[in-house]
Computed example of a mutant assay.
Amino acid sequence: MKIRVATYNIHKGVSSIGSKPRVLALKKAIGQFEADVVFLQEVQGQHDKFSTKFGEESTGHRHWPKSAQHEFFAGDSHHSAYGMNAVYDHGHHGNALLSSFPIGDTRNHDVSDHAYEQRGILHCVLKTDKGPVHCYVVHLGLFESGRGRQAEALIDCVNASAPNGEPVIIAGDFNDWRNTLSAKLRDKLGVVEVFDELGTGSTLGGLVRNLVGAKRKVTPARTFPAALPWFRLDRIYVRGFKVDTAEVLHGTLWAKLSDHAPIVATLKLS
């Protein structure tokens, strides 16, 4: 069974400069993933100010959906789940999952490290023809010490909820620009990042490393800022899957929609 997955930090549905509404364009762009499962971060469950400012009543055209963003993106083609993390007077935002498979058990784990950054891990169990697949939507904090503690919470969460080697997909914005967490996640969860297995023997460097038995340096893809990606912030980790393809989507479209570029991967259940 093949599953096409994507992860995308949508910057709350507004442009990173000028806070212009991008929700309608984001729905079309997410459709271009042609993904079975989409992991989303910074999703607005409610924003009364933007709804009033960009709604049909004030502009003559509706540039902001009446429904929550995850429900709007899901439409009639996907199921959706939402984990509320940050709450304020005029609304809230968090992580979301869109899935063409039915979503079974859902739980949002609060992993906030301090009062100024509300973070969570949204755990959803997908009901597929081949059995359950555990999905974890992640958005870790901006400070390295806090990310370390949040990674430990993620490890505990996965080990408690998928303890017997069940298929796992962990995706989102890790803010791990120095790549200090990957080795720990590999060791304690048996996962690989989708770019780990790609390119090992298809380049001259890969052939040389294979011949001499040297290990390839494993690095995630660059996804931030979207206009000229340099930092390696977004990841997709998997267990129980073979990675067929993985790519970061670049170009003018993606640079306009969010400050992060999306990652799309095709997985095959082992």
Results as ranks from 00 to 15, higher is better:
residue 187 D to G: 02
residue 183 A to C: 08
residue 141 G to S: 08
residue 171 A to T: 09
residue 208 V to G: 00
residue 201 G to W: 06
residue 181 L to R: 05
residue 192 V to Y: 01
residue 162 A to M: 08
residue 206 G to M: 02
residue 147 R to N: 01
residue 188 K to T: 05
residue 184 K to L: 15
residue 167 P to W: 13
residue 160 A to H: 11
residue 164 N to D: 11
residue 148 G to P: 01
residue 174 F to P: 01
residue 181 L to Y: 01
residue 170 I to L: 10
residue 166 E to M: 05
residue 210 N to R: 15
residue 188 K to D: 10
residue 152 E to M: 12
residue 142 L to R: 10
residue 208 V to K: 12
residue 160 A to K: 14
residue 153 A to Y: 04
residue 180 T to Q: 13
residue 210 N to Y: 07
residue 152 E to V: 10
residue 215 K to A: 15
residue 189 L to T: 10
residue 160 A to N: 13
residue 154 L to A: 03
residue 148 G to L: 06
residue 190 G to P: 08
residue 145 S to Y: 03
residue 145 S to R: 13
residue 141 G to Y: 01
residue 204 L to I: 14
residue 214 A to G: 07
residue 207 L to M: 15
residue 171 A to S: 08
residue 170 I to D: 02
residue 179 N to Y: 11
residue 196 D to K: 07
residue 167 P to Q: 11
residue 148 G to K: 09
residue 170 I to E: 00
residue 161 S to V: 05
residue 183 A to E: 15
residue 187 D to C: 08
residue 152 E to A: 14
residue 194 V to E: 07
residue 166 E to W: 09
residue 154 L to D: 06
residue 158 V to N: 06
residue 202 S to Y: 03
residue 145 S to K: 13
residue 187 D to H: 14
residue 173 D to H: 05
residue 150 Q to V: 11
residue 190 G to C: 09
residue 179 N to G: 02
residue 164 N to I: 00
residue 170 I to P: 06
residue 154 L to N: 01
residue 149 R to A: 12
residue 144 E to A: 15
residue 153 A to C: 05
residue 188 K to E: 13
residue 152 E to K: 11
residue 150 Q to I: 12
residue 147 R to E: 02
residue 156 D to I: 01
residue 196 D to N: 05
residue 143 F to M: 07
residue 197 E to N: 04
residue 145 S to E: 11
residue 152 E to N: 13
residue 140 L to I: 04
residue 147 R to K: 02
residue 151 A to W: 03
residue 158 V to G: 09
residue 140 L to C: 07
residue 186 R to C: 14
residue 180 T to S: 13
residue 173 D to K: 00
residue 211 L to M: 14
residue 215 K to G: 07
residue 163 P to S: 06
residue 198 L to V: 03
residue 159 N to E: 04
residue 154 L to H: 03
residue 203 T to F: 06
residue 199 G to Q: 09
residue 157 C to T: 15
residue 193 E to T: 00
residue 155 I to E: 01
residue 195 F to A: 12
residue 210 N to S: 14
residue 165 G to H: 06
residue 192 V to G: 04
residue 176 D to Y: 10
residue 193 E to G: 03
residue 198 L to N: 01
residue 210 N to D: 12
residue 174 F to Y: 09
residue 217 K to H: 04
residue 172 G to Y: 00
residue 151 A to L: 04
residue 207 L to G: 09
residue 202 S to V: 10
residue 179 N to I: 15
residue 157 C to Y: 00
residue 158 V to H: 08
residue 179 N to P: 01
residue 147 R to H: 00
residue 194 V to C: 03
residue 143 F to N: 04
residue 165 G to Q: 07
residue 153 A to V: 05
residue 145 S to D: 10
residue 147 R to C: 03
residue 196 D to E: 10
residue 216 R to V: 12
residue 151 A to Y: 04
residue 140 L to W: 12
residue 195 F to M: 14
residue 205 G to F: 11
residue 190 G to D: 09
residue 174 F to Q: 02
residue 144 E to V: 13
residue 211 L to N: 06
residue 172 G to K: 08
residue 177 W to F: 00
residue 215 K to Y: 02
residue 170 I to F: 04
residue 186 R to Q: 14
residue 203 T to W: 06
